[in-house]
Amino acid sequence: MTAPAPAPAPSALRQGVELARKDLVLELRAGEALRVTAPFGAVALLLIPLGVGSDVPLLRQLGPGMYWVIVLLFGVLVTLRQSAVEGPAQLAVLRLCGVHPGVRLAGRAVANAVLLLAFEAVLAPVVIILYDPELTGWPWLLPVFPLVAAGLALLGTLANALAQGMAQRTALGPLLVVPLTLPLLLGATQVPQAARYGSQPALWLLMIFTLDFAVAVAIGLVARHLEESA
């Protein structure tokens, strides 16, 4: 009688999908991103008019920009949420299971991107109702939402990995991420304006995509070093 052959190791794609699913299930249980951070963002959108005045034409102009600023600032909190923290024991298990650090970070980035997309979807009706922004050229926003979510998710994943295990993680993470989100903010706000004024919105989309791609490549290249820091 021979011992049964060991089951083949799951592919990297399968591992990444499972890790992303694990993160999403944890978030579903904790509700940190959508039940705490999203209402917090909505409150911020509600408070801004009280600070700048309730001038309707002004708010109509400010609305889209404020929306993206809130998405980026509060979206960082989504990527740095407590439920996305792995302890040394969990990391050790993943290492022993042979999960490549790049796959682990990719899974985390995918889960972050899904959550950020949901976060954007929750806040979009709020800004439309409160600010009544100009929606000419809105179809151009359809690729902007996932591209911004992906960019912020990648940057947040990187910052989370850099600040892993540090006491100042929640304070340091935003400082590391937010300045680097400048191309995302510019691209997201300029695409509808370019569409409205007959310019080239595709160039702004290309800029966001370039940042997403560059950060994804950078994470892939440094993933092993980040694993050692954890």
Partner: peptide, 12 residues
């Protein structure tokens, strides 16, 4: 290690 990784990304 951490600052080397961030030093590379920050240059963007």
């Amino acid at each position: 290690r951490r600052s080397a990784v961030f030093g590379v990304v920050a240059f963007v």
